[in-house]
């Protein structure tokens, strides 16, 4: 039997009426839910939790501004003052006047940078850079002096000078990188003044390490690059921003030395306003 062709019974009409009532009830429910949602609070309870869990703490604001950049610059200067003091005993005596000059320059630059931080309303940072002091400096000193698993350097004087050359190049590169990041032209000028000074330090160290005139520039590239990169005063046409690798320490059982990457400061190296120093 085809029920589509059958006339409707009285019971069917009652069932249709029931459906209408159901539709009305559904519409009322949806409207009420929307009204309650609209009038409710806007705070999300976050991800649902089961059981007892500690409350989360918001990360501090890590925005990079002029004060952060200048504090970072000052922290790098402090790291160099401490590091060069450590390297002094390993360096050749012929370099002692140069090391005195480097430490004096970095001390003066750190003071000047921190004065600028204070003038801008920030808190001066008078410790070394936390990331450099946590990772980079221990790696360098460990490779030169030896630390348990690593044998002491076969030539500490060479490594001390190469470290200072790499660090001065790093400072020059860092301050060059800060120039377009700083908002005010006068601060950019201050940054490149320090960067240019560090570039001169690096060039003088290259002459001390590689000698004269061999340390002036690379006239002909060797067929096989040396394991320890040769330091040149004129290393490139432009100031570089690509980082460098410092090679220090004794050779291990497979003839390799410690390679330490030095890249210009980034988010993990900046000294934010909430960064505390430990010195």
């Amino acid at each position: 039997m085809n029920h589509l062709t059958q006339p409707p019974h009285a019971g069917d009409a009652e069932r249709r009426l029931d459906r209408r009532q159901l539709f009305r009830l559904g519409g009322l429910t949806v409207t009420t839910a929307a009204l309650v949602a609209a009038c409710g609070g806007t705070e999300s309870p976050g991800i649902g939790r089961v059981g007892v869990a500690p409350t989360t703490t918001d990360l501090p604001d890590g925005s990079v501004d002029d004060v952060v950049l200048l504090r970072t610059a000052a922290s790098i200067q402090h790291t160099m003052i401490d590091l060069y003091g450590e390297l002094r005993s390993a360096a050749p005596s012929s370099a002692s006047a140069l090391i005195d000059l480097l430490i004096a320059d970095h001390t003066a630059d750190a003071e000047a940078l921190n004065s600028a931080v204070a003038e801008l309303g920030g808190e001066p940072f008078e410790c070394g850079n936390p990331r450099l002091e946590e990772l980079t400096v221990p790696a360098i000193l460990g490779a030169i002096n030896g630390d348990g698993a690593v044998a002491p350097s076969d030539d500490p004087a060479r490594d001390a000078l190469n470290t200072m050359f790499a660090m001065e190049t790093y400072i020059a590169e860092s301050h060059q990188a800060f120039v377009p990041m700083l908002s005010a032209p006068a601060l950019r000028q201050a940054a490149i003044t320090i960067g240019g000074e560090a570039a001169r330090h690096a060039a003088v160290l290259a002459l001390e390490i590689t000698g004269r005139p061999d340390g002036y520039l690379e006239i002909e590239a060797p067929a096989e690059p040396p394991q320890i990169p040769t330091a040149y005063a004129l290393s490139s046409l432009y100031g570089q921003l690509g980082g460098q690798t410092l090679v220090v320490g004794a050779q291990d059982e497979v003839g390799q030395r410690q390679n330490i990457a030095l890249a210009s400061p980034s988010f993990n190296t900046f000294v934010y306003e909430f960064t505390d120093g430990t010195c």
Binding site: I192, G196, A199
Partner: peptide, 11 residues
């Protein structure tokens, strides 16, 4: 110009 200053300082 900053990259030029770095290189000319070495010159």
């Amino acid at each position: 110009i900053a990259s030029v200053v770095i290189a000319e300082s070495r010159h």
